[in-house]
Design a protein around this nucleic acid. Structure first.
Lengths: 199, 199
DNA sequence: TGATAAACTCGACCGCATTCGAGATTTTAA
DNA sequence: TTAAAATCTCGAATGCGGTCGAGTTTATCA
């Protein structure tokens, strides 16, 4: 029988992911040990390392599954009559709420995604999907005449993403204490970009 | 004798910091164990924890010492005839070079500073010093008429800081591969802010 | 000064991520 | 079919961050 091993491996892998999702959700990342995961998945502790290089690696896979839900929300078409500024604030506040919903979870995720130990394609794919959504949003703003057609939309995406990061850092650093403050900061910062601050 | 204990404590503390600086520099953060540090400082492992709460805490103190050097450079008066945009690029490129000089060091530092496990005053002080420099820079730009006097300078500092973060994330994510690319990205993003991208 | 309190030190210990390596299982090929 | 090669499994061992608590040193004050 050809694929016996392959099939088993796939099953075991799925068992590890499922167990991780359950335990991370129940007890959080740091409180869940590899042994817990192994036991829950019905395998030996060392076997986990055949499938995932490190605990962080499992975490990122866990996040992928979680983030799928977020995408569903993020991709629902924005209200068309909103200004692009409002759409952007909506978009990033959704991300913001998702990431900060569980503080420990968000911190871990951000550390891994933004400053990974080595360049990580899983992360790149995620970012690409976000940037695609943003570019679509900007394109339709151009069609409505809210944005000049000459803008480099990727760079613009990076710009707003950076501002979103800034607000997140403010949150984790204790400068931004509530969702309201976060939204206000975003709106002000985003405003700069459209109006410019020069003379 | 009154200050005997105080004095000893100060000496021990200094011994820990010196040992840490030496070992972190020699072998890197992750390869240096608390036991290494203790041995090098001539004390017991557990004693280290009388002076520093966690290994991360030692790391941040280590960084403070390192960052002092950076401040010396950052505070040399910018060339007065530069445009504020050039001054900003200079300023943030210096920070950028400093942080990315040693990739592992920078990653660890950024993770701790930007997404700390709990709000950290040491970090806040650092940021305050940076923001002070930036605000001074903006003020003199206002005096020269390069910036309208009504701007909220703190928010403006946050804005540029966020863009700097974005470039750093690009670096660690493998999108920005060289210092030249980093500088170009910064210049373009900073440009947005002054000109605005609206119609 | 002496004795009680306060603070400091550190070897031993704990929990956990990660690695080792010996044995079990599956594949390959004759 | 079968036996050697390749791959997979997992209990045991390792190394490290962090804590505990018993013993030691210093401070306090009658």
């Amino acid at each position: 029988m050809a694929g016996l091993r392959e099939q088993k491996k796939a099953e075991t892998r799925k068992a590890i992911i499922d167990s991780s999702i359950q335990l991370f959700t129940e007890k959080g990342f740091e409180k869940t040990s590899i042994e817990d995961i192994a036991k829950q998945a019905g395998i030996g502790k060392a076997t986990v390392y055949t499938y995932f290089a490190t605990k962080d690696d499992i975490f990122l896979t866990f996040c992928s599954e979680e983030l799928e839900d977020a995408f569903a929300t993020l991709q629902t078409p924005r209200k068309e009559d909103d200004r692009v500024l409002d759409q952007l604030v909506d978009f990033f506040m959704l991300k913001f709420k998702f990431v900060t919903k569980n503080s420990e979870f968000g911190r871990q995720l951000l550390r891994e995604m933004l400053f990974p130990k080595k360049v990580n394609n899983k992360v790149k794919e995620h970012n690409q999907r976000y940037f695609d959504i943003l570019e679509k949003l900007f394109k339709s703003a151009q069609d409505r005449g809210e944005l000049p057609p000459a803008q480099d939309l990727f760079l613009l995406s990076v710009h707003f993403f950076s501002l979103y990061l800034g607000v997140l850092v403010g949150w984790y650093g204790g400068y931004v204490a509530s969702l309201e403050e976060a939204e206000e900061a975003m709106r002000n910062l985003f405003g700069h970009v459209f109006m410019g601050v020069g003379l």
